[in-house]
Write a protein that binds this DNA or RNA. Structure first.
Lengths: 209, 209, 209, 209
DNA sequence: TATGAATGAGTGTTCATTCAT
DNA sequence: GATGAATGAACACTCATTCAT
């Protein structure tokens, strides 16, 4: 006994090793241009083995997506557990977005695939539903911080979910062009600056003065 | 007489018909998943015919990109020609972004492909350079509006280009999640609202009070 | 009246113009890599027009072949009409081969296509038969010169046709490697020398001493 | 144990099976008209599998070429190792040419593709260079035999390389028309005879009398 | 008669997925 | 479980041939 547990543990470890490899490859080449062969090579496994753990390329991708979302979620929860004031928590979340993108650029990129037009055509409705639910979960987590700030009279009253949408929008929007310009061969050093200013501006509009 | 002119006119018309079809297909399926066969079917032409007008799939895509950029540019120029005060011009540009995305959603999506990781690997350096130049041209157009507003003391002094980056970021960010959620099968009706509020907030931070 | 004659004359002229263009193109690129578009461009005509004069790419190629053979034939006949002694005539023919290949390299190359494996697959039996007959005609012309030299006791007695085969073989063999090396990027200047020596050697074996 | 070795052995066997199929197909249809599908069908494999062993059609063709050259080389080396007198060695080489062409007609034909005009356009400079080097290697091997015969006073003094060129030329020339006539649907039985006579003639011119 | 735009079958090549070992 | 050789359906692109003008 305990054998089963070991089996499960090993299986999970394998899956994570494959995911780690896949994040690199998908992040580098994009979903379409990445091949299962690439992933296998990166993971130092054979193609066949990948298929023992993931039914298809798509499923592998989706698992990465869930992984990223999960990591985000955990980061936010940790911030919420600090007991800081809501506005400082929000600032931390904002910074966490930035740090995440910097620390796990490939993982961040995986999130972006969702925005590719035509992607849903390849994903099953059930999968889409699941993605949806998980995304909503993360959003509502941040919403709770914003709502708290409003309840405490730190921020003016708004629909908290709208504020979160805006924040996330701004963040995506800030990073995207930076990525694009990287695509175009230009590096941008002012992203960090821009990122800070953007928050200050936006939060300024929120605060009760 | 006039035969040559007719030829030229017809050729241009054909190219536009192909572009129209391509925008649909690329917009729906994305660059990688779209096939030349798809485009041909949509245009009610044969594959070979497409290649009479565009040398490659890439060239076809790039032509769409340039078309979009050009249209953006013209929209902005028209606004600048109105002689309105710079801050009202900026508001109009902001609204124009929104209207454009609403009116030509597929064309707008074409712009987004640039942000796909791994895309540049498929484009020639020369093409990337050209894209770059054209993008910069559009950005500097809006920058001039912002700079004018600062010169007139309407806005506080900032680096105009940074402000434009921020605006564009916010816009992209606002639309992206909306698109994503559309991907996920949810329609969002509050985008218009959010779009208006976002501008008010951001501009508020800019204005000299 | 006379109109018909003019028509015929013009048609022949067109055909020749097309042939001239085709020889260039086929000679440069080889049969497979040459396109009808290439030929049309070279002839400053439209593709459609070519098809008014030749039913297919193959037929065009065959017409070039016949043209080359005819030219060879005429050259040999001219030499035979000089009334020179048969051995001097043979020397002249040998030199003519060389001169022809130098003067009309493209036309010469067209002759070589016959040796491409797989070519017959594309040619109709009737065409093959016709090519055959014409080739034989040229060979027998030279055979008559050799036979005359034997009859006059200048050369030892052999099967004349075999001798001609050998001569032609040697010639082809001499030029081919030169072409090959040109293919490989090396130019050979000694071909002319080799060509002269080869004849002297071979003829030496033929002469009654 | 031995697994790796078996793998290597099997891989080599597969490659050879594909080569065998390719020689048939290329020999029959020529380089351009042969398709990878043809090769796959002949090898009783799928197209994809061919590409597991050869990167491209060109590489497959070049491998056949090198194979042929190598086989030629080995044949010549075996003759040189006999210790026979140089003139008898040369006779053997000459016979070997003939035997080779008879035994491996398709393989022989593969060598001829090099002479197709326009072929080099499809081959990379690096490949051409390599072909060049290997061809030269084979030629210089035979040159050494001829040079030895001259050194021993059996043959008159000439540039050995020129003599070899001539021999090879003659051989090619002899076989080509035979091939051509086969193309044209005629079989020739006198080739063997012609082949013998041609050598006698040529060598006669070489010998010190 | 001349045009050249349109066609569509065909080509080399890639890659997600399967399966015998 | 693990492997990686094999598969075959796609895909981008070409080009001989046709036909409306």
């Amino acid at each position: 006994m305990g054998t089963l547990q070991r089996k499960v543990r090993e299986r999970r470890a394998r899956r994570q090793a494959i995911q780690a490899a896949a994040v690199q490859v998908f992040g580098d080449k994009g979903y379409s241009r990445a091949t299962m062969e690439d992933v296998a090579r990166q993971a130092e496994l054979s193609v066949g083995t990948i298929y023992l753990y993931y039914r298809s390329k798509e499923e592998l991708y989706v698992s990465l997506l869930f992984e990223s979302m999960q990591r985000f979620r955990e980061g936010i929860e940790k911030i919420m557990a600090t007991g800081l004031s809501p506005d400082r928590q929000l600032k931390r979340v904002w910074d966490y977005f930035y740090a995440y993108h910097l620390r796990y650029p490939q993982s961040y990129r995986v999130l972006l695939f969702l925005q590719q037009p035509g992607l849903p055509a390849g994903l099953s409705p059930k999968t889409l539903q699941e993605i949806n639910v998980r995304a909503a979960r993360n959003f509502s987590l941040v919403s709770r911080i914003v709502a708290a700030a409003m309840a405490k009279g730190i921020y003016r009253s708004h629909e908290p979910r709208e504020v979160v949408d805006l924040l996330w929008s701004l963040f995506l929007g800030l990073v995207h062009p930076a990525e694009t310009r990287q695509n175009l061969g230009i590096t941008i050093s002012t992203l960090r600056d821009l990122h800070r200013k953007a928050f200050r501006w936006l939060e300024d509009g929120l605060r009760v003065k």
